[in-house]
Every structure is written in structure tokens, then in C-alpha cells.
Amino acid sequence: MKKKRAIENAVTYAVLIIISIIWLFPFVGLVLQSFRSYATEYGGMVNYLVPKSFSLDNYKFLFSGETNYVRWYANTLIIAFFVALFQTIIILCVSYALSRMRFTGRTFLMKFWLILGMFPGFLTMICLYFLLKQFGLTQEGAVPGLILVSIASSGMQYYVCKGFFDTIPKALDEAARIDGASRARIFVSMILPIIKPIIIYTALVAFMAPWCDYVFASYVAFGHDPSYNVAVAMTRWVWTNDYQGYFTRFCAGGVLISVPVTLLFMFLQKYYVEGVTGGAVKG
């Protein structure tokens, strides 16, 4: 029996190690290739993993001012920060209203938003572009424009957060109301402190999304390089033939983006797990 258990465990470890290798491989490759200088070792993705000589050329290039890399980075960071801030506020407001209060139109609103959510987002791309343009929020103004669009519709993403609110006993509210506290006071000074995990989860998810936003960002900012975000600017390096020898630079740029985002994520991983599992269980 004991022997069987040991064999079982050994097999499990073997499988887990293989899985880990597969999962880490692309990241190891990415990091290693970012240290390969295009000047000494040509080729897009060469057929060897470890560069023959390590070089920081690609990283130097990113900060050399030849491209707007620092600017793109800053844009993305700004977008991510403000989206995380406002989106969290909006989602909390909506969740509180829908979870704790009963008013006419509540179920209608929830059903209506559910239906809206079934339309694919890209459908409205051109329309949003021209709407933003009316306010001067495209091209030069693309950064605030992207923030506006991301937060404007964020009210519809209340599900996970509302699920959490629902688990807080209503009796708490009722007791406070009998003591004369207003709804606003209950929300701010009673509910908010006990839902810290979900606040962090919501903000984290909102913060991560703009780093990947290629589709809409490219549509809103087109033709104005200084307002691109990293995703828009750097996919060009892989997709467009204008950029010769940029693949290793893409790797370097990718590493610099991934490291802080990944660290932040790992640091807050606990809350993230709580959020996704909570969300999944409640549907």
C-alpha cells in the first residue's frame, strides 16, 4: 500500500514537472531571446534557444529615444491606473445599488444589461470612434478617450462584485438604518471596509485589461504614434514588414511590460483567486 502511494506520488511529480516546463517554456524563450542582439545574430526566431552571446542592445534600443517606447509605456500605465480607479468605483456603486436596494426598474435594468452584453463589443467600434471624435478624444486625445470608453460601460460588469455583496447579511444594514444611518453612510463606512478583497480583485482585473487592449486602442489612436499603448505599438513590430529586425526588440519590450504586471499580480494573487472562484461559484 505504501509502495503504491510512493509510485503514485512519483508519477504525479513527474507530470507536474513536465507541465511546469511546458508552461514556463515560452517565458524562458521570451527572456532569452530578448538578450540576443540582432546586430550579431540575425534572424527572426532562430532555431536555438540560448543566444550565443548575451547583449543588452534590445533594452538599450527601447530607451534610446528612437521610438516612443517610454511614452507608450507611460500611456498604458496611465490608462490602466485610471481605468482601475474609476471602474472599481463604478462597479461598487452599481453592485451596492443592485444588491442592497429594491427599486422600480431594478430587474429590468439587470435583464437589459444582460441582453446588451450578448452583442459583440467590436460591433460598435466605428460608432464609438466617431462619438469620441466629437469630443476630441481620438488620435491626440486617445489616452483619455480610451479611459472614458473603458469606464463608461463598466457598470455592466457587476456580477462578481454583486455576488459578494449578496453574501453580506442584510440584517447589518437594517440595524444601522434603525440607528438612523443613511444608505450612503452605510455604504461608505460599513460595507466598504468589509469587502476589501473584492475591491482589490475588481481593481486588479481592471488594471490588467488595458495592457492587452490592441483592438480598440489601435482604432482610436490610429496615425498618432505618441498616443499608442504598448500593445498597439509593439504588435506592429511583429506583424508589419516595415520593422526589420524588431523581433528581439519585441521580446525585450515584452519582458519589460510583463515583469511589473506579473509581480503586481503575484503579490495580489490571493485576492484574484478569491474573486474568480467566488465569481464562478455564484455564476
Binding site: 517565458f27 490588467m208 504588435t235 510583463s258 506579473t262 499580480f265
Partner: peptide, 18 residues
């Protein structure tokens, strides 16, 4: 943690690399 890396790294980096 190893598995969760794929969630943390922005997809446009990891997928374009893949």
C-alpha cells in the same frame, strides 16, 4: 504559481511569441 504566470503576463506578449 507557475501555472498562474500565463494569466499574469499580458496576452499580446505571450501569444505573439507563441
Amino acid at each position: 504559481t507557475i501555472l498562474v504566470l500565463t494569466i499574469a503576463v499580458p496576452q499580446f506578449v505571450s501569444l505573439l511569441y507563441i
